[in-house]
Amino acid sequence: MRSTTGGRSSCPLPSAPFPLSSVICRLTAELTLKAHKLGWAPYLLLLPSLAFLAIFFAAPMIQAFGLAFQNGDGEWSTVSIRTMLDDAAFWRSLRTTLLLIVLVIPIQFTLAMTMALVVNAKLKGSGLWLYIFAIPLGISELSAGIIWFAIFTERGWLNSFLEGLGIVDRPIIFLNYQEPLLILLAIVLAEAWRATSIIMIILVAGLQSIPKDYLEAADMLGATTWQKIWRVILPLLRPSIQVALILRTILAFQVFATVIALAGRGLTTLSAESYRWYGDLQNSNVAAAYASLILLLSVISTLFFLWLVPANQDRV
């Protein structure tokens, strides 16, 4: 339970269901109150992280934006942007990237939610489940791609398995470049396997912060398990869902190694294009244009999710 601070009383009461203004007002009031008491100490303590972010994130970001709006000779120009847009691979890479996001994220969320509920159910050995579910987190994107490549390739595990069972006579070529849809599905599978557990971890943390009383109150009010999930758990989990969605989508815009491992150049994504322009085509300006586009899309998706899943509830 929150204590009432003097700074809060001047804030207007939040208007349902998205009281952003009141939250900001309250936050500002509280920060002002604290700043009075603490002087400059908080800012001093923030300095190392600020320096870290500035040097390793903000500076390269600005640099990339700069590069994207320059030509090869370092003059200001939109030629790099135009080169990117006119490239035959651009729309294909954008489509694949978006398609992957649209396919992977719902699958991952359904899986992750189920896994999180299983872990949180405190069944016997549920701690073990958490570790089992978290194993893919320790495997790099590229290794994950190679593992799934080893499964789906012509002489891979899946074909050996099917042959061993006598289901097929000769290997099926799953990763056929004539069948981009199959490759896409293989990537979806690999990505779901690789990155679902990060969502699960966030959701488990969120679930554990929901007081047991809410669920027991729902029990007493006659809610079935489904009703509890839909009416109580999911709404209370909104802050975690929001974080997970944003994080996962940003990472999905950067999807690279899994695609390279499974599809080679058969399918391309935005980051693969960025890499191709930087490496193969030796044009860091167009590469920067792609990188900037990824950043822009990440920002847009973040804002979209902030709007779609407002996290700030009126917590008691």
């Binding site: 007081p211 009383d213 809410y214 027991e216 109150a217 809610a223 009126d314």
Partner: peptide, 18 residues
């Protein structure tokens, strides 16, 4: 609980914040 003819008031109130 949901099949019992019972209602309960919790110490923490457990009023749904959302």
């Amino acid at each position: 609980p949901r099949k019992r003819p019972i209602a309960m008031v919790f110490q923490s109130y457990a009023v749904f914040p959302h």
